[in-house]
Amino acid sequence: MAAHGDRAGGRGDGGGGGPLSSPRLRHGTPERAGLDADLLAGLVRDVRLLSEGFRPWCSGAVMLAGRGPVIAAEAVCGWAVRYAGYDAAADRGVELPPAARVPMTLDTPFDLASLTKLFTSIAAVQQIERGTLGIDAKVGAYVPEFTAAARHGITVRQLLTHTSGLRPELPLFDAPDLPARLALLRAEAPSSAPGTYLYSDLNMLLLQHVLERLTGRPLDALIREGITRPLGMTATSYGPRTGAAATEDQRRPWGKADRGMLRGEVHDENAWALGGVAGHAGLFAPAHDLAVLCRTLLNGGSYGTARILGPDFVDLMLTAPGLGFRIDQPSFMGELAGHGAAGHTGFTGTSLVLDPTTDTFLVLLANTVHPRRRPADSTPRASAATRLARAVVPLGSL
């Protein structure tokens, strides 16, 4: 199908600010951003094809890319809602009639899945900057009822760098109620020696409880008051969300719960079982809001007149091994990786990459699990990032 609102370059709507403010995002031409127009046009064409074919990579996608304060390319393709369900016998989606489908738009909110971890990490580093949270403090000092973490001396830094040794996930959704789910989390001991890298959702769940105990505020309020509201990211929030891109016809045995077709309800089963607000998943956002977050971090923690972190603490997050962020991962960063690019992916098909060296950013959001989850494939993400990397015009040539 044709894309809705694709462009490389585009309208010039605002931006900038006074001498005490950092530049805000604005739309502009690739040339103004210091990017090659032909290569960006190729990036747009690639994104438009992601929802095509018999087994497309995704039902629909939205992409924003730019350099400095300029959004130089954006594209949207496919459908926010394409399927009524999944037919396990035929191993294919049950397509809605064309009139009942919902087209993807630039403003469609997505279930961010693990991109939520970035917001939890920023909220933690904000407390570290204020001196209220010690980066090498023991988790047990803040939440002693998490007895296994306390007994093994897990630290805040280990949670932020996925070196706590906790296993990747824990089936909290199988416990009968919230108290039983929290009891499982509190008793969970590391499966490998602390200090060893092992990516785990449990790190951000523990960090959520540390932050909530420390501040006396729920995580959704901390993210709203400390990140999204000051940055004007008004479309970013925890669910439920109306108008969101659909995710999965979630049923056993491929899913971990029988919930049916999901739209606007968090896809992650543990986040759902914990009430929808979790440190590792649960946020919804459109692409532009995530571009604002990228721009803020590339600006050293400031956007317009708002400051959410100081430059030194942004550097701490974005310097290997990274705090919350993954650094130089060619599997989804393509040729942007190699000199300090930072980013993350989400299980539902979401991703973002920002590269401080070239001052570029790429947001690619897709509903790859609609109508059901498949083995992860980051090839289109890496290809898009490589397109952007090759489009960078050396500063001396501008």
Rank of each mutant, 00 (worst) to 15 (best):
S114M: 00
P394R: 08
S302G: 09
G264H: 08
G78C: 04
L316F: 02
I135H: 01
A8C: 14
L160M: 00
A389K: 13
D258P: 00
Y199T: 01
F313C: 00
A221K: 12
I71G: 07
G9T: 11
D107Y: 02
P321K: 07
G165F: 10
D377L: 04
A366M: 15
T155S: 15
F173N: 04
E52D: 14
G346S: 14
V353E: 05
A337K: 03
R217T: 08
L388E: 15
G322H: 02
L318H: 01
S121H: 13
P330R: 13
L293T: 06
P176G: 14
L184T: 03
V292K: 05
E95D: 12
A8D: 09
G282L: 03
V47Q: 08
T163W: 05
F347M: 04
A65D: 13
L202T: 00
A273D: 05
L398T: 10
T345C: 07
R82N: 11
W57M: 02
T368I: 07
A72M: 13
G53T: 03
A72L: 11
A342I: 02
P230Q: 13
V47C: 11
G346D: 14
G243F: 07
V369D: 08
L262C: 05
A391Q: 13
C294T: 08
V314G: 00
T120C: 12
L198I: 11
A89I: 05
R372M: 12
N270K: 10
Y83C: 09
D359S: 12
L185F: 08
T147N: 01
T215I: 05
G42M: 10
L318P: 00
W272V: 02
R24G: 04
T242W: 00
L297Y: 00
L35I: 09
V143E: 11
G243N: 12
A33M: 02
L231C: 13
R92E: 15
M104K: 00
S59F: 08
P69M: 08
V314A: 02
D315S: 12
A33T: 10
A41M: 06
D359K: 14
A187G: 07
L274S: 04
L198C: 01
V76W: 04
A37S: 12
L40K: 12
R11T: 07
S21N: 07
M63W: 05
L133R: 01
G9E: 12
A84C: 03
T358S: 15
L133A: 02
N299C: 04
D111H: 12
P171M: 06
L39V: 10
M1Q: 10
R295T: 06
R374W: 01
P218I: 08
E129K: 01
P394A: 14
D359R: 15
A124H: 11
H288I: 14
P69Y: 07
G279P: 03
A244P: 11
D13W: 01
A137Y: 02
R326H: 09
A189P: 07
G216V: 04
A187S: 14
L283G: 13
G275V: 10
Y83L: 11
G53I: 02
K138W: 04
T242L: 10
L262I: 06
P144I: 07
A123K: 11
A61Q: 11
R307P: 03
H280F: 08
I122M: 06
H280P: 08
V353A: 05
A281C: 02
T319I: 06
A33W: 03
L222R: 15
A376Q: 10
R390I: 00
L166Y: 09
L182G: 00
R32Y: 04
P144E: 04
T368E: 04
